[in-house]
Write a protein that binds this DNA or RNA. Structure first.
Lengths: 263, 263
DNA sequence: CGACTCTTTGATCCCGATCAAGTTCAGTGG
DNA sequence: CCACTGAACTTGATCGGGATCAAAGAGTCG
Protein backbone atom coordinates (compact mmCIF):
# COMPACT_ATOMS: atom_id res chain seq x y z
CA UNK A 1 0.00 0.00 0.00
CA UNK A 2 2.78 2.41 -0.72
CA UNK A 3 1.49 5.93 -1.00
CA UNK A 4 3.62 8.00 -3.34
CA UNK A 5 7.08 7.05 -2.15
CA UNK A 6 8.82 8.92 -4.89
CA UNK A 7 8.99 12.42 -3.48
CA UNK A 8 10.74 11.52 -0.22
CA UNK A 9 13.37 9.47 -1.99
CA UNK A 10 13.88 12.24 -4.50
CA UNK A 11 14.44 14.64 -1.65
CA UNK A 12 16.82 12.27 0.05
CA UNK A 13 18.75 11.88 -3.17
CA UNK A 14 18.88 15.64 -3.57
CA UNK A 15 20.30 15.84 -0.08
CA UNK A 16 23.00 13.33 -0.93
CA UNK A 17 23.83 15.14 -4.15
CA UNK A 18 24.33 18.31 -2.19
CA UNK A 19 27.50 16.80 -0.79
CA UNK A 20 28.36 13.82 -2.94
CA UNK A 21 28.71 13.12 -6.61
CA UNK A 22 26.77 10.07 -7.80
CA UNK A 23 26.51 8.58 -11.26
CA UNK A 24 23.22 8.22 -13.11
CA UNK A 25 23.15 4.55 -12.25
CA UNK A 26 23.85 5.13 -8.57
CA UNK A 27 21.12 7.75 -8.46
CA UNK A 28 18.74 5.30 -10.02
CA UNK A 29 19.61 2.75 -7.35
CA UNK A 30 18.72 5.20 -4.59
CA UNK A 31 15.45 6.16 -6.21
CA UNK A 32 14.40 2.58 -6.69
CA UNK A 33 14.66 1.71 -3.03
CA UNK A 34 11.28 0.85 -1.71
CA UNK A 35 9.84 1.23 1.71
CA UNK A 36 6.69 1.54 3.70
CA UNK A 37 5.03 4.83 4.45
CA UNK A 38 3.71 5.35 7.96
CA UNK A 39 2.20 8.26 9.82
CA UNK A 40 3.57 9.24 13.19
CA UNK A 41 0.68 11.12 14.64
CA UNK A 42 0.45 13.82 17.23
CA UNK A 43 3.26 15.29 19.22
CA UNK A 44 4.92 13.01 21.66
CA UNK A 45 4.50 10.19 19.28
CA UNK A 46 7.61 8.13 19.71
CA UNK A 47 9.42 5.86 17.38
CA UNK A 48 11.63 3.87 19.63
CA UNK A 49 13.97 1.66 17.68
CA UNK A 50 15.51 -1.20 19.55
CA UNK A 51 17.68 -3.37 17.38
CA UNK A 52 15.44 -2.18 14.66
CA UNK A 53 15.70 -3.32 11.07
CA UNK A 54 14.79 -0.19 9.20
CA UNK A 55 15.78 3.44 8.89
CA UNK A 56 13.33 6.36 8.91
CA UNK A 57 13.23 8.87 6.11
CA UNK A 58 11.21 11.98 6.90
CA UNK A 59 8.69 12.50 4.12
CA UNK A 60 6.70 15.23 5.75
CA UNK A 61 6.68 17.07 9.05
CA UNK A 62 9.39 17.50 11.64
CA UNK A 63 11.11 14.77 13.63
CA UNK A 64 13.37 15.06 16.66
CA UNK A 65 15.90 12.70 18.10
CA UNK A 66 16.24 12.87 21.85
CA UNK A 67 17.89 11.55 24.98
CA UNK A 68 15.70 10.72 27.92
CA UNK A 69 16.97 11.37 31.44
CA UNK A 70 15.91 9.33 34.43
CA UNK A 71 13.73 12.10 35.79
CA UNK A 72 11.84 12.20 32.52
CA UNK A 73 13.53 15.34 31.21
CA UNK A 74 14.47 15.28 27.58
CA UNK A 75 17.25 16.66 25.52
CA UNK A 76 16.72 16.85 21.81
CA UNK A 77 19.93 16.02 19.98
CA UNK A 78 18.80 16.57 16.40
CA UNK A 79 15.96 18.02 14.41
CA UNK A 80 15.15 16.43 11.08
CA UNK A 81 13.32 18.00 8.17
CA UNK A 82 11.80 16.32 5.11
CA UNK A 83 14.45 14.54 3.07
CA UNK A 84 16.56 13.69 6.10
CA UNK A 85 17.24 10.07 6.90
CA UNK A 86 17.14 10.14 10.71
CA UNK A 87 18.52 6.69 11.19
CA UNK A 88 21.20 6.29 8.62
CA UNK A 89 23.71 5.40 11.32
CA UNK A 90 21.58 2.47 12.35
CA UNK A 91 22.45 0.78 9.07
CA UNK A 92 25.90 0.10 10.47
CA UNK A 93 24.98 0.22 14.16
CA UNK A 94 21.56 -1.33 14.62
CA UNK A 95 22.06 -1.42 18.36
CA UNK A 96 22.47 2.33 18.64
CA UNK A 97 19.01 3.16 19.76
CA UNK A 98 18.28 6.82 19.55
CA UNK A 99 14.66 7.61 20.23
CA UNK A 100 12.68 9.66 17.74
CA UNK A 101 9.62 11.76 18.25
CA UNK A 102 7.43 13.48 15.70
CA UNK A 103 6.73 17.15 16.24
CA UNK A 104 3.18 17.50 15.09
CA UNK A 105 1.99 15.10 12.41
CA UNK A 106 4.75 13.50 10.39
CA UNK A 107 4.91 11.15 7.46
CA UNK A 108 7.78 8.72 7.42
CA UNK A 109 9.13 6.28 4.89
CA UNK A 110 10.70 3.20 6.40
CA UNK A 111 13.63 1.72 4.51
CA UNK A 112 15.01 -1.71 5.36
CA UNK A 113 18.58 -1.84 6.66
CA UNK A 114 19.05 -4.90 4.58
CA UNK A 115 18.43 -2.97 1.39
CA UNK A 116 20.47 0.06 2.40
CA UNK A 117 23.37 -2.09 3.42
CA UNK A 118 23.22 -4.09 0.23
CA UNK A 119 23.26 -0.90 -1.82
CA UNK A 120 26.21 0.46 0.13
CA UNK A 121 28.23 -2.73 -0.18
CA UNK A 122 27.63 -2.92 -3.92
CA UNK A 123 28.26 0.74 -4.75
CA UNK A 124 31.27 2.22 -2.96
CA UNK A 125 30.31 5.75 -3.99
CA UNK A 126 26.95 5.32 -2.30
CA UNK A 127 28.63 3.99 0.81
CA UNK A 128 30.82 7.09 0.86
CA UNK A 129 27.75 9.29 0.37
CA UNK A 130 25.97 7.60 3.28
CA UNK A 131 29.06 7.93 5.42
CA UNK A 132 29.34 11.59 4.47
CA UNK A 133 25.72 12.11 5.41
CA UNK A 134 26.52 10.75 8.86
CA UNK A 135 29.41 13.20 9.09
CA UNK A 136 27.14 16.13 8.31
CA UNK A 137 24.91 14.98 11.14
CA UNK A 138 27.89 14.74 13.48
CA UNK A 139 29.08 18.17 12.45
CA UNK A 140 25.78 19.67 13.50
CA UNK A 141 25.96 17.73 16.74
CA UNK A 142 29.41 19.15 17.50
CA UNK A 143 28.06 22.62 16.89
CA UNK A 144 25.23 21.96 19.33
CA UNK A 145 27.75 20.94 21.95
CA UNK A 146 29.47 24.26 21.47
CA UNK A 147 26.22 26.15 21.77
CA UNK A 148 25.02 24.35 24.86
CA UNK A 149 28.36 24.60 26.57
CA UNK A 150 29.41 28.13 25.84
CA UNK A 151 26.51 30.31 24.76
CA UNK A 152 23.67 32.02 26.54
CA UNK A 153 20.00 31.42 25.90
CA UNK A 154 19.58 34.22 23.40
CA UNK A 155 22.46 33.13 21.18
CA UNK A 156 21.43 29.52 21.35
CA UNK A 157 17.93 30.30 20.16
CA UNK A 158 19.24 32.58 17.44
CA UNK A 159 21.67 29.91 16.32
CA UNK A 160 19.03 27.24 16.09
CA UNK A 161 16.80 29.50 14.01
CA UNK A 162 19.64 30.26 11.63
CA UNK A 163 20.52 26.61 11.33
CA UNK A 164 16.99 25.48 10.61
CA UNK A 165 16.37 28.35 8.23
CA UNK A 166 19.42 27.54 6.18
CA UNK A 167 18.75 23.81 6.14
CA UNK A 168 15.20 24.43 5.02
CA UNK A 169 16.43 26.66 2.24
CA UNK A 170 19.03 24.12 1.15
CA UNK A 171 16.31 21.48 1.05
CA UNK A 172 14.14 23.80 -1.06
CA UNK A 173 11.39 23.77 1.51
CA UNK A 174 11.27 27.50 2.03
CA UNK A 175 13.58 30.45 2.40
CA UNK A 176 15.99 30.99 5.24
CA UNK A 177 13.91 33.91 6.45
CA UNK A 178 10.43 32.47 6.06
CA UNK A 179 9.60 28.91 6.90
CA UNK A 180 7.24 26.63 8.77
CA UNK A 181 8.53 25.41 12.08
CA UNK A 182 5.79 23.54 13.89
CA UNK A 183 7.37 23.06 17.26
CA UNK A 184 6.20 23.99 20.74
CA UNK A 185 8.19 26.16 23.08
CA UNK A 186 8.60 23.23 25.41
CA UNK A 187 10.20 21.22 22.64
CA UNK A 188 12.35 24.19 21.75
CA UNK A 189 13.46 24.22 25.37
CA UNK A 190 14.32 20.53 25.13
CA UNK A 191 16.47 21.28 22.12
CA UNK A 192 18.20 24.28 23.66
CA UNK A 193 18.66 22.93 27.16
CA UNK A 194 16.32 25.58 28.56
CA UNK A 195 13.01 25.70 30.37
CA UNK A 196 9.97 26.49 28.27
CA UNK A 197 9.40 29.62 30.33
CA UNK A 198 12.78 30.97 29.46
CA UNK A 199 12.39 30.06 25.80
CA UNK A 200 9.24 32.12 25.79
CA UNK A 201 11.08 35.10 27.21
CA UNK A 202 13.93 34.81 24.74
CA UNK A 203 11.50 34.65 21.84
CA UNK A 204 9.91 37.82 23.10
CA UNK A 205 13.32 39.41 23.40
CA UNK A 206 14.11 38.61 19.77
CA UNK A 207 10.69 39.84 18.75
CA UNK A 208 11.11 43.09 20.66
CA UNK A 209 14.48 43.56 19.01
CA UNK A 210 12.68 43.32 15.64
CA UNK A 211 14.68 40.25 14.67
CA UNK A 212 11.89 37.75 14.19
CA UNK A 213 8.13 37.75 13.89
CA UNK A 214 5.02 35.62 13.95
CA UNK A 215 6.42 32.85 16.00
CA UNK A 216 3.66 30.35 15.90
CA UNK A 217 4.26 27.40 13.71
CA UNK A 218 5.88 29.72 11.23
CA UNK A 219 9.00 31.82 11.48
CA UNK A 220 9.71 35.08 9.79
CA UNK A 221 13.21 36.37 10.28
CA UNK A 222 13.17 40.12 9.79
CA UNK A 223 16.88 40.77 10.09
CA UNK A 224 18.92 37.80 9.03
CA UNK A 225 22.28 39.51 9.35
CA UNK A 226 21.73 40.70 12.85
CA UNK A 227 20.42 37.31 13.91
CA UNK A 228 23.51 35.70 12.43
CA UNK A 229 25.67 38.13 14.38
CA UNK A 230 23.94 37.37 17.66
CA UNK A 231 24.24 33.66 17.03
CA UNK A 232 27.84 33.87 15.83
CA UNK A 233 26.46 31.68 13.09
CA UNK A 234 28.94 30.31 10.60
CA UNK A 235 27.18 28.10 8.04
CA UNK A 236 30.32 26.12 7.27
CA UNK A 237 29.36 23.37 9.69
CA UNK A 238 26.36 22.43 7.58
CA UNK A 239 28.81 21.31 4.90
CA UNK A 240 26.22 22.17 2.33
CA UNK A 241 26.36 23.03 -1.33
CA UNK A 242 30.10 23.61 -1.28
CA UNK A 243 32.19 21.51 -3.61
CA UNK A 244 32.74 19.32 -0.62
CA UNK A 245 34.11 16.38 -2.34
CA UNK A 246 33.35 15.96 -5.93
CA UNK A 247 37.04 15.27 -5.77
CA UNK A 248 37.42 11.57 -5.60
CA UNK A 249 40.98 12.07 -6.67
CA UNK A 250 42.97 14.98 -5.46
CA UNK A 251 46.64 15.95 -5.88
CA UNK A 252 49.36 13.75 -4.53
CA UNK A 253 49.13 13.16 -0.84
CA UNK A 254 51.93 15.21 0.54
CA UNK A 255 51.82 16.43 4.11
CA UNK A 256 51.22 20.06 4.70
CA UNK A 257 53.93 21.64 6.76
CA UNK A 258 52.49 22.76 10.04
CA UNK A 259 53.75 25.13 12.62
CA UNK A 260 53.83 23.74 16.12
CA UNK A 261 54.53 20.28 14.85
CA UNK A 262 57.94 18.73 15.01
CA UNK A 263 58.56 15.44 13.30
CA UNK B 1 62.04 8.57 9.05
CA UNK B 2 59.09 6.66 10.37
CA UNK B 3 59.53 5.88 14.04
CA UNK B 4 57.79 2.68 15.03
CA UNK B 5 54.44 3.19 13.35
CA UNK B 6 53.23 -0.26 14.14
CA UNK B 7 51.77 0.13 17.60
CA UNK B 8 49.37 2.99 16.80
CA UNK B 9 47.99 1.21 13.75
CA UNK B 10 47.62 -1.97 15.78
CA UNK B 11 45.64 -0.04 18.34
CA UNK B 12 43.51 1.55 15.68
CA UNK B 13 42.82 -1.82 14.15
CA UNK B 14 41.90 -3.18 17.57
CA UNK B 15 39.47 -0.31 17.91
CA UNK B 16 37.87 -1.14 14.58
CA UNK B 17 37.65 -4.82 15.46
CA UNK B 18 35.80 -3.92 18.61
CA UNK B 19 32.82 -3.00 16.47
CA UNK B 20 33.44 -4.47 13.04
CA UNK B 21 34.44 -7.82 11.66
CA UNK B 22 37.32 -7.69 9.19
CA UNK B 23 38.99 -10.51 7.28
CA UNK B 24 42.66 -11.31 7.65
CA UNK B 25 43.36 -9.58 4.40
CA UNK B 26 41.46 -6.46 5.35
CA UNK B 27 43.30 -6.32 8.66
CA UNK B 28 46.57 -6.57 6.82
CA UNK B 29 45.56 -3.65 4.63
CA UNK B 30 44.95 -1.47 7.69
CA UNK B 31 48.22 -2.43 9.31
CA UNK B 32 50.23 -1.71 6.21
CA UNK B 33 49.07 1.87 5.93
CA UNK B 34 51.97 4.16 6.40
CA UNK B 35 52.16 7.61 7.77
CA UNK B 36 54.36 10.18 9.39
CA UNK B 37 54.83 10.46 13.12
CA UNK B 38 54.84 13.93 14.62
CA UNK B 39 54.96 15.30 18.12
CA UNK B 40 52.44 17.90 19.20
CA UNK B 41 54.21 19.48 22.07
CA UNK B 42 53.00 21.29 25.14
CA UNK B 43 49.45 22.05 25.96
CA UNK B 44 47.68 24.49 23.78
CA UNK B 45 49.46 23.08 20.84
CA UNK B 46 47.00 23.25 18.02
CA UNK B 47 46.61 21.19 14.94
CA UNK B 48 44.35 23.25 12.77
CA UNK B 49 43.34 21.41 9.66
CA UNK B 50 42.05 23.49 6.82
CA UNK B 51 41.24 21.49 3.78
CA UNK B 52 43.86 19.20 5.08
CA UNK B 53 45.01 16.07 3.31
CA UNK B 54 45.65 13.76 6.21
CA UNK B 55 43.93 12.31 9.25
CA UNK B 56 45.45 12.20 12.74
CA UNK B 57 45.77 8.97 14.65
CA UNK B 58 46.64 9.43 18.31
CA UNK B 59 49.69 7.31 19.10
CA UNK B 60 50.32 8.63 22.55
CA UNK B 61 48.88 11.27 24.84
CA UNK B 62 45.50 12.93 24.84
CA UNK B 63 43.97 15.06 22.11
CA UNK B 64 40.90 17.25 22.21
CA UNK B 65 38.70 18.57 19.44
CA UNK B 66 37.18 21.96 20.14
CA UNK B 67 35.05 24.83 18.93
CA UNK B 68 36.34 28.32 19.34
CA UNK B 69 33.92 31.14 20.17
CA UNK B 70 34.47 34.70 19.08
CA UNK B 71 35.36 35.82 22.60
CA UNK B 72 38.09 33.19 22.71
CA UNK B 73 36.18 30.77 24.91
CA UNK B 74 36.47 27.16 23.92
CA UNK B 75 34.20 24.19 24.01
CA UNK B 76 35.81 20.82 23.70
CA UNK B 77 33.62 18.51 21.63
CA UNK B 78 35.60 15.31 21.87
CA UNK B 79 38.48 13.79 23.76
CA UNK B 80 40.64 11.26 21.96
CA UNK B 81 42.82 8.59 23.49
CA UNK B 82 45.58 6.53 21.86
CA UNK B 83 44.21 4.40 19.04
CA UNK B 84 41.52 6.94 18.12
CA UNK B 85 41.57 8.43 14.66
CA UNK B 86 40.47 12.01 15.41
CA UNK B 87 39.88 12.98 11.84
CA UNK B 88 38.33 10.01 10.19
CA UNK B 89 35.40 12.12 9.05
CA UNK B 90 37.76 14.36 7.13
CA UNK B 91 38.40 11.51 4.72
CA UNK B 92 34.96 12.13 3.25
CA UNK B 93 34.62 15.78 4.27
CA UNK B 94 38.02 17.43 3.97
CA UNK B 95 36.42 20.84 4.39
CA UNK B 96 35.05 20.07 7.81
CA UNK B 97 37.70 21.74 9.83
CA UNK B 98 37.54 20.83 13.47
CA UNK B 99 40.44 22.16 15.44
CA UNK B 100 42.52 19.81 17.54
CA UNK B 101 44.67 20.51 20.55
CA UNK B 102 47.04 18.23 22.39
CA UNK B 103 46.61 17.95 26.15
CA UNK B 104 50.14 17.67 27.36
CA UNK B 105 52.65 16.08 25.01
CA UNK B 106 51.13 13.90 22.32
CA UNK B 107 52.47 11.71 19.57
CA UNK B 108 50.44 11.58 16.40
CA UNK B 109 50.57 9.50 13.28
CA UNK B 110 49.43 11.31 10.16
CA UNK B 111 47.67 9.18 7.55
CA UNK B 112 47.00 10.50 4.07
CA UNK B 113 43.36 10.88 3.07
CA UNK B 114 44.30 9.59 -0.32
CA UNK B 115 45.38 6.27 1.14
CA UNK B 116 42.46 5.95 3.52
CA UNK B 117 40.00 6.72 0.76
CA UNK B 118 41.63 4.26 -1.61
CA UNK B 119 41.44 1.55 1.02
CA UNK B 120 37.79 2.30 1.72
CA UNK B 121 36.83 2.31 -1.94
CA UNK B 122 38.55 -0.99 -2.58
CA UNK B 123 37.33 -2.86 0.51
CA UNK B 124 33.63 -2.29 1.28
CA UNK B 125 33.98 -3.91 4.70
CA UNK B 126 36.65 -1.39 5.63
CA UNK B 127 34.47 1.45 4.38
CA UNK B 128 31.69 0.18 6.62
CA UNK B 129 34.10 -0.08 9.55
CA UNK B 130 35.26 3.51 9.01
CA UNK B 131 31.69 4.67 8.73
CA UNK B 132 30.84 2.80 11.91
CA UNK B 133 33.73 4.43 13.68
CA UNK B 134 32.28 7.81 12.75
CA UNK B 135 28.96 6.69 14.17
CA UNK B 136 30.56 5.79 17.49
CA UNK B 137 32.01 9.26 17.59
CA UNK B 138 28.63 10.79 16.85
CA UNK B 139 27.01 8.66 19.51
CA UNK B 140 29.34 10.08 22.12
CA UNK B 141 28.66 13.54 20.80
CA UNK B 142 24.92 13.05 21.19
CA UNK B 143 25.46 11.94 24.75
CA UNK B 144 27.49 15.07 25.44
CA UNK B 145 24.62 17.16 24.13
CA UNK B 146 22.37 15.43 26.63
CA UNK B 147 24.79 16.04 29.46
CA UNK B 148 25.38 19.69 28.67
CA UNK B 149 21.72 20.40 28.15
CA UNK B 150 20.12 18.57 31.00
CA UNK B 151 22.57 17.72 33.78
CA UNK B 152 24.19 19.67 36.56
CA UNK B 153 27.91 20.14 37.02
CA UNK B 154 28.37 17.19 39.35
CA UNK B 155 26.69 14.67 37.07
CA UNK B 156 28.48 16.01 34.04
CA UNK B 157 31.86 15.56 35.63
CA UNK B 158 30.94 12.12 36.89
CA UNK B 159 29.70 11.14 33.45
CA UNK B 160 32.87 12.27 31.74
CA UNK B 161 34.99 10.30 34.18
CA UNK B 162 32.93 7.18 33.60
CA UNK B 163 33.13 7.60 29.86
CA UNK B 164 36.87 8.09 29.78
CA UNK B 165 37.46 5.28 32.24
CA UNK B 166 35.49 2.83 30.19
CA UNK B 167 37.04 3.89 26.91
CA UNK B 168 40.50 3.54 28.38
CA UNK B 169 39.64 0.09 29.61
CA UNK B 170 38.25 -0.92 26.25
CA UNK B 171 41.42 0.31 24.61
CA UNK B 172 43.47 -1.73 27.10
CA UNK B 173 45.25 1.38 28.37
CA UNK B 174 44.25 0.96 31.98
CA UNK B 175 41.29 -0.04 34.08
CA UNK B 176 38.07 1.90 34.34
CA UNK B 177 38.88 2.81 37.92
CA UNK B 178 42.56 3.67 37.58
CA UNK B 179 43.95 5.56 34.67
CA UNK B 180 46.10 8.49 33.58
CA UNK B 181 44.21 11.56 32.61
CA UNK B 182 46.64 14.40 32.01
CA UNK B 183 44.25 17.29 31.64
CA UNK B 184 44.02 20.62 33.44
CA UNK B 185 40.93 21.76 35.26
CA UNK B 186 40.55 24.59 32.79
CA UNK B 187 40.43 22.11 29.94
CA UNK B 188 38.03 19.99 31.92
CA UNK B 189 35.87 23.09 32.22
CA UNK B 190 36.06 23.58 28.47
CA UNK B 191 34.83 20.05 27.99
CA UNK B 192 32.03 20.29 30.53
CA UNK B 193 30.85 23.80 29.73
CA UNK B 194 31.90 25.03 33.18
CA UNK B 195 34.36 27.51 34.61
CA UNK B 196 37.60 26.10 35.93
CA UNK B 197 36.71 27.38 39.38
CA UNK B 198 33.55 25.35 39.46
CA UNK B 199 35.28 22.27 38.09
CA UNK B 200 37.66 22.53 41.00
CA UNK B 201 34.79 22.63 43.46
CA UNK B 202 33.01 19.69 41.88
CA UNK B 203 36.18 17.61 41.99
CA UNK B 204 36.46 18.40 45.66
CA UNK B 205 32.86 17.44 46.16
CA UNK B 206 33.43 14.05 44.53
CA UNK B 207 36.56 13.60 46.55
CA UNK B 208 34.82 14.47 49.79
CA UNK B 209 32.09 11.99 48.92
CA UNK B 210 34.80 9.34 48.66
CA UNK B 211 34.04 8.71 45.02
CA UNK B 212 37.37 9.59 43.46
CA UNK B 213 40.91 10.25 44.59
CA UNK B 214 44.28 11.60 43.55
CA UNK B 215 43.07 13.88 40.88
CA UNK B 216 46.32 15.08 39.43
CA UNK B 217 47.17 13.65 36.10
CA UNK B 218 45.84 10.32 37.32
CA UNK B 219 42.38 9.25 38.35
CA UNK B 220 41.43 6.68 40.90
CA UNK B 221 37.74 5.95 41.10
CA UNK B 222 36.99 4.56 44.53
CA UNK B 223 33.33 3.74 44.03
CA UNK B 224 32.51 3.02 40.42
CA UNK B 225 28.92 2.04 41.04
CA UNK B 226 28.03 5.15 42.94
CA UNK B 227 29.75 7.32 40.35
CA UNK B 228 27.77 5.57 37.62
CA UNK B 229 24.59 6.25 39.55
CA UNK B 230 25.34 9.96 39.95
CA UNK B 231 26.20 10.21 36.27
CA UNK B 232 23.22 8.16 35.15
CA UNK B 233 25.86 6.50 33.07
CA UNK B 234 24.71 3.90 30.58
CA UNK B 235 27.66 2.49 28.62
CA UNK B 236 25.48 1.49 25.67
CA UNK B 237 26.30 4.70 23.79
CA UNK B 238 29.93 3.69 23.48
CA UNK B 239 28.81 0.87 21.23
CA UNK B 240 31.76 -1.13 22.40
CA UNK B 241 32.55 -4.79 22.50
CA UNK B 242 28.96 -5.82 21.89
CA UNK B 243 28.27 -8.01 18.91
CA UNK B 244 27.34 -4.83 17.16
CA UNK B 245 27.40 -6.01 13.68
CA UNK B 246 29.27 -9.10 12.90
CA UNK B 247 25.99 -9.64 11.11
CA UNK B 248 26.52 -8.67 7.55
CA UNK B 249 23.46 -10.71 6.76
CA UNK B 250 20.51 -10.80 9.02
CA UNK B 251 17.04 -12.31 8.72
CA UNK B 252 14.70 -11.14 6.03
CA UNK B 253 13.93 -7.45 6.18
CA UNK B 254 10.45 -7.33 7.50
CA UNK B 255 9.24 -4.30 9.36
CA UNK B 256 8.75 -4.54 13.05
CA UNK B 257 5.24 -3.74 14.13
CA UNK B 258 5.25 -0.59 16.17
CA UNK B 259 2.70 0.91 18.46
CA UNK B 260 1.90 4.53 17.75
CA UNK B 261 2.48 4.05 14.06
CA UNK B 262 -0.37 3.74 11.64
CA UNK B 263 0.30 2.80 8.09
C1' DC C 1 -19.36 23.95 26.89
C1' DG C 2 -15.51 21.80 29.42
C1' DA C 3 -10.95 19.66 28.85
C1' DC C 4 -6.54 20.02 27.24
C1' DT C 5 -2.47 21.80 25.54
C1' DC C 6 0.18 25.84 24.68
C1' DT C 7 1.62 30.53 25.67
C1' DT C 8 2.36 34.34 28.67
C1' DT C 9 3.51 36.84 32.92
C1' DG C 10 5.17 37.59 37.69
C1' DA C 11 7.81 36.34 41.92
C1' DT C 12 11.38 33.97 43.98
C1' DC C 13 15.38 30.99 44.30
C1' DC C 14 19.75 28.78 43.30
C1' DC C 15 23.49 26.93 40.52
C1' DG C 16 27.34 28.23 38.60
C1' DA C 17 29.88 32.51 36.70
C1' DT C 18 32.85 36.04 37.82
C1' DC C 19 36.16 38.66 40.39
C1' DA C 20 40.02 38.71 43.32
C1' DA C 21 43.51 36.87 46.14
C1' DG C 22 46.45 33.50 47.75
C1' DT C 23 48.99 28.95 47.41
C1' DT C 24 51.66 25.34 45.46
C1' DC C 25 55.02 23.69 42.49
C1' DA C 26 58.13 22.99 38.48
C1' DG C 27 61.31 25.19 36.04
C1' DT C 28 65.16 28.46 35.20
C1' DG C 29 68.72 31.36 35.77
C1' DG C 30 71.86 34.02 38.95
C1' DC D 1 71.23 27.42 46.95
C1' DC D 2 67.92 30.86 46.50
C1' DA D 3 65.13 34.41 43.98
C1' DC D 4 62.09 34.79 40.02
C1' DT D 5 58.56 33.24 36.96
C1' DG D 6 54.50 31.35 35.34
C1' DA D 7 51.15 27.88 35.15
C1' DA D 8 48.09 25.29 37.71
C1' DC D 9 45.18 24.73 41.77
C1' DT D 10 42.51 26.61 45.77
C1' DT D 11 39.46 29.57 48.39
C1' DG D 12 36.16 33.30 49.50
C1' DA D 13 32.73 36.86 48.23
C1' DT D 14 29.44 38.49 45.20
C1' DC D 15 26.54 38.56 41.10
C1' DG D 16 23.32 37.09 37.65
C1' DG D 17 21.14 34.05 34.16
C1' DG D 18 17.99 30.94 33.98
C1' DA D 19 15.14 27.48 36.82
C1' DT D 20 11.18 26.89 39.32
C1' DC D 21 6.67 27.75 41.11
C1' DA D 22 2.22 29.52 40.35
C1' DA D 23 -1.52 31.21 37.81
C1' DA D 24 -3.80 33.47 34.26
C1' DG D 25 -4.98 34.01 29.07
C1' DA D 26 -5.64 31.70 24.56
C1' DG D 27 -6.69 28.59 21.17
C1' DT D 28 -8.53 24.14 19.77
C1' DC D 29 -11.03 19.97 19.82
C1' DG D 30 -14.69 16.59 21.12
Amino acid sequence: MPISDAPPLTRFLARLLRHSALSEEEQEVILSLNGQTVLASARRDIICPRTVDHASLVADGLVGRFEQMQDGERQITAIFIPGDLCDLHSVVCPTAEWALEAFGEAKILLLAHRDLRAVAMKHPAIAMAFWRDTVVDASILAKWVGNLGRRNARSRLAHLLCEIGLRIEQARLGSRTTFDFPITQTQLGDALGLSSVHVNRMIQALRRAELIERFDRRILIKDWDRLVAIAEFDPAFLLGDSAIDRIHDEPAGRFRSQENLRT
